[in-house]
Design a protein around this nucleic acid. Structure first.
Lengths: 216, 216
DNA sequence: CGCCGATCTAGAACAAGTTTCAGAGTTGAT
DNA sequence: ATCAACTCTGAAACTTGTTCTAGATCGGCG
């Protein structure tokens, strides 16, 4: 039984900021170095190139330490995705997409995110594969990513008080986004097809949203 | 350079029946034993319990032979999924789901498939995880699975000559099916939520299909 | 029958994710 | 400044997917 089997004290967990322990400055810096190394490695070779020993060396951290910060490769990649999504969300908030209907704006948002992926397909591949491969032990972190995705989509709809029906539509849109992304990343769909499918699913929003300038 | 590096003669490939080589009776039997062992192991422990050494032993085949038939664990699990889908499709053909609208019938079909998954969640988990984790080297086999899924959904719509728009809707439905499945399997969504989301996405079909008994 | 090439078997070997451990380094409280 | 507790390091060990090798088997052919 290892001393920290049940985390007697607070460990630099995968979780976000405050709750457990404040993370000293050096620890925050380590965490950041790790995430950056991960993204860098993923950018070249994709999922396979993110090798834990490499990440450790590249971020100047011992292997054991890496595992203390991120208990598995999947955790690490999911955390990286969360990190990237935060950037994206911040960017989108500054320049929200234009569009008549909610569907237009959501599709615009997703296509913008999609173009970001196209700029770095291997990184995208690594993150998305990790996300869908994650098992229950990562569900908390995956849940966070989904919440962020949902928040991004909801922002685009401009809905302040979505109904359960609308939330379902938003979830379905999120599902489709991830799924088409995978299909594109594994070479089974063209960019055009992704675009079409995204627009198709976005119609669901107008189907359930009280339109601002009627359509349907 | 191993003799068969580029498959001089025909190897018992992952591909379906005829083209390359007819597969002797004993080979066909081996292939079947392997698929069954895989499904059996997945049924208990899920993805992790499908260990190649175990599969080999359990199907009375040498490890090297297993790899000759299925070049990776992912290939093996995707082939298993294809196998199971064929059973399902056959079953559905015998008793097609009833329902007024195409959306109803598609949702009914998917919920029936979903209940089949519930009966064997660990097997479902293993297969679906493999499917979404598959990289380009498996895309042919994954493509087959998607084709089968699409065929099952299309069967339910009763459409004989679907438009590109409708095909897109069918793809989106397929995406949603896989994605909600994963969400459920990793414990991040309830059965009810899956049901709701499936019904939500199925509306897309009525949106694009010439309705038999309209539903605005 | 006896040979040939292809297939199958058993098992070692290798690769990368994960775990473990002893010891050095930090940190915080006194 | 000192001690105890915790964290980090470096390296080895373990697990499981994958590859490789040498020899046994099999199926067809002269």
């Amino acid at each position: 039984m290892p001393a920290d089997a049940h985390r007697t004290k607070a460990a630099p967990d995968a979780g976000r900021a405050e709750p457990a322990s404040p993370l000293t400055e050096r620890q925050e810096a380590r965490r950041r170095r790790i995430l950056e190394a991960c993204a860098r490695l993923a950018s070249r070779g994709g999922f396979d190139a993110v090798q834990m020993r490499e990440v450790a060396e590249s971020s100047q951290v011992a292997l054991g330490t890496l595992y203390r910060y991120f208990p598995s490769k999947i955790h690490l990649l999911v955390a990286t995705m969360q990190d990237q999504l935060e950037h994206l969300h911040a960017t989108l908030r500054k320049k929200p997409p234009a569009g008549e209907t909610a569907a237009d704006r959501v599709a615009g948002t997703l296509m913008r995110a999609f173009r970001a992926m196209q700029r770095d397909p291997l990184l995208a591949d690594a993150m998305v594969r990790a996300l869908t491969f994650a098992d229950r032990s990562v569900s908390a972190e995956v849940e966070q990513v989904f919440r962020r995705t949902t928040a991004i989509v909801l922002d685009a709809t401009d809905l302040t008080d979505p109904t359960p029906e609308q939330l379902s539509a938003v979830r379905v849109i999120g599902h489709t986004w991830h799924s088409t992304l995978i299909t594109w990343l594994s070479g089974r769909a063209s960019i055009e097809q992704v675009g079409v499918d995204i627009e198709t699913v976005c119609r669901l929003i107008d189907l359930t949203a009280p339109p601002r300038s009627g359509q349907g």
